[in-house]
């Protein structure tokens, strides 16, 4: 398995480099747009990635086809989120990503999580985002939306991260190994109790198993998460309560260059 690493890794490097180049072309900029080459390069990278994944998936099933479709959707959506010059469209594309991810979660048999993702993200967080986008609407198309800062360095950071991952992908169990996992586990006699215990929640309802886990093993974490949400709510209220103060600040707001000049030393 490790012998296959180099070829896989190099293929992935190439695909990621191509994707990074495409992304670089697609990031918003004020000078001459490179949309067309960006689309070409980016889509070729995506196709390459899908081909790579397809090769890895030795026996295509409906699930793997769905996986390919949803992963493509998620990646496309993600690209659009960060490349679209208008925040509203970014938010909408983000919904697409959330839906695609939720679909992938269903493929991973995490139905509860998929539902929670849709409800929390698409239902709550995204709505908040859209509200804020509407509140903080700038007239026209501000330059800071039309021009990315240091796109090359940013893309380079992303590429290096992906390259770091790429070398490790082939060490992970692919579909070939996972095909008959339950069979292998059944034949594995060394850890029957542990296998039983860990498999137990998944044998029944996924949601029920998670509920048990949250209320037993992670109950403190759950409480802390709830507390965190409460604090967040209080904080958000406190921030918005400061509207009067912020208006006063707005009145006194001056060009940056003048700030501090009138301050008398002691």
């Amino acid at each position: 398995m490790t012998s296959a690493l180099p070829q896989h890794a190099y293929a992935l490097y190439a695909i990621f480099a191509l994707g990074a180049l495409g992304l670089y072309c697609l990031l918003p900029r004020t000078e001459r747009a490179r949309t067309i080459p960006g689309i070409v390069i980016g889509s070729s990278a995506l196709i390459g990635l899908l081909l790579f994944l397809g090769i890895r998936i030795a026996s295509p099933t409906s699930a793997s086809v769905y996986f390919c479709i949803f992963s493509a959707l998620a990646i496309l959506g993600g690209v659009r989120v960060i490349t679209h010059p208008k925040p509203v469209y970014s938010a909408v594309y983000f919904v697409l990503v959330v839906v695609a991810v939720a679909a992938m979660l269903i493929l991973l048999q995490a139905e509860f999580l998929a539902a929670a993702l849709i409800i929390i993200y698409a239902g709550a967080i995204l709505v908040t985002y859209v509200f804020v986008i509407m509140l903080a609407q700038q007239s026209g198309r501000p330059t800071y939306d039309r021009r990315a800062r240091e796109p090359f360095a940013a893309v380079l950071a992303g590429f290096i991260l992906m390259a770091a991952v790429a070398g490790q992908v082939s060490t992970l169990p692919g579909s070939q190994d996972a095909t008959s996992r339950s069979a292998r586990m059944a034949s594995d006699e060394s850890l029957p109790a542990a296998a039983d215990e860990s498999a137990d929640p998944l044998k029944g309802s996924n949601t029920a198993g998670m509920g048990v886990l949250l209320m037993t093993k992670y109950v403190i974490a759950l409480e802390i998460a709830g507390l965190l949400l409460l604090i967040s709510m209080v904080g958000a209220i406190a921030l918005s309560k400061k509207r009067a103060a912020s208006e006063r600040i707005e009145e006194e707001a001056r060009p940056i260059g003048q700030i501090g000049k009138e301050v008398k030393p002691f």
């Binding site: 800062r149 360095a153 991260l161 070398g167």
Partner: peptide
């Protein structure tokens, strides 16, 4: 964002180097 950029690149490079030199997590 500049600081974040430097941090991210540095982090990515370090991770890459570590993963390559230790032969991976698998």
């Amino acid at each position: 964002q500049s600081y974040a950029m430097a941090m991210a690149i540095g982090f990515a490079v370090i991770m890459w180097v570590v993963l390559l030199s230790t032969g991976g997590c698998g």
